[in-house]
Design a protein around this nucleic acid. Sequence first.
RNA 1: GCUCCCUUCGUCUAGUGGCCUAGGACAUCGCCCUCUCACGGCGAGUACACGAGUUCGAAUCUCGUAGGGAGCACCA
Length: 474
Amino acid sequence: MGSVKLQIMTIRTRFAPSPTGFLHIGGLRTALFSWAYARRHGGVFVLRVEDTDLERSSSEAIAQILDGLSWAGLSHDEGPYFQTQRFDRYKEVIEAMLATGHAYRCYCTKGELDQMRAQQTAQGQKPRYDGRCRDLKEVRLGVTSVVRFKNPLDGAVVVDDVVHGKVVFQNVELDDLIIARSDGTPTYNFCVVVDDMDMKITHVIRGDDHLNNTPRQMNMLLALGCKAPVYAHLPMILGSDGAKLSKRHGAVSVLHYRDEGYLPEALLNYLVRLGWSHGDQEIFSLDEIVELFDIADVNKSASAFDGDKLAWLNQQHMIRAPAAQLVAPLRWHLARAGITVGSDSILEQIILVQRERAKTLKEMAANSVFFFKAPTAYDEKAVNKHVTSEILKSLADLAAALGRLPDWSAVPIHDCISSCAAARDITLGKLAQPVRLAVCGGSVSPPIDATLAILGREETFVRLRRAQEHWGGT
RNA sequence: GCUCCCUUCGUCUAGUGGCCUAGGACAUCGCCCUCUCACGGCGAGUACACGAGUUCGAAUCUCGUAGGGAGCACCA
């Protein structure tokens, strides 16, 4: 038919973690890119758990990965599928490949294979299966067989990668990989192929440590009469020292960032800027990421993780977010610091005055404990510096003046402190610092007027009196 | 060892032959703002891994070299 084939293809991406450990930022970024790409094109984001390694997979890891994704807000449209629940399907495909001659049984023992590899390595060759069982006619008794894929012997596979461009692999470099172990269970590379085919994945977005697996997967797809998906291999994320991120070295669970007081949108913003940019823009909302992100713009080189920039972005997001949105997480962090807060309104007020002086919610919580717990000690150095007998007199004046204020809010409080200072012919700072010490115990807090306003009249007087008594005696 | 990938300020990046004596951001340092701490504003230093070639002209194209990474399992 000569008509133009205009097919509306639904974009389908997938995130396919193996539950052998926690979800770390590398995995989260892969998930983010797949998610964002699907969202941008109105596609479907599939979650698949690659748990064929029964030994190393755990249900705790699965739960942890799911928690991490849900905290980050990367919701999937399909799944989670579990490879362990698809063994019948894999078996079926293996039988079919055996029948069509795309796969064969191999009776080589582990010992034989080890010996083969040892020999090849000794000769400076790449260790690989030499195909000795490829054309075997009869079964070998007494040895349980594995099943190998019959990889083409010549020609080349071209991976047309969205981020790397065309990458050519010679088939001679590829050997016949095992697709079913001697116990019949399927192996990773094969499961991926069957799953991507069955789940109609159109775009495979994954770490570039998989680039070398791709030609084999494409060959298998071809043997199954299936069109290869579009591949995009993302560069890796390295530790802050430029070394590979691993569990032993710097890799932590994404939930660790929640515990440290980071906003998921800030983490995602940080991750999307690793290997990708949009002009000079640094701050992206989740919506903007969905709207602007394109894998085609991702660059090829690995990037190092920079905690300082993450912290800066986190603060920027806290400053931009509606205060109400930070109430729940701040309450959570305060609770972790031993403070339970009922009222939303006081938390909103605190957020408004604290967010430009904290990089994380955890830090904000720590800096805000004094609002709920009177200081048990005063910073000695600061007291020596700011509290004198003269100041103590001014403090008494101020307490009296504050007591006469009809309206307890920041502006009148500020005017009151300033006029008190002016009356004594001292700067505002000279008076504000002792007050600050009295109410929060240290020399750092939000502006003194806002601090007292939030603290409330009663509490302010209690703390002022206590400090005056304390300092008066020394 | 073999195959594949990567290489712009300390870090993340802009840059697709002339707009580049290389732009932005984080970090660093200085100044301003200022009741503290911050936020914010302004400014400074700092980079095209190296070597050849193509070209009137190269961060950008080609080839080498070096360095880094991945893969080469009955792991994923």
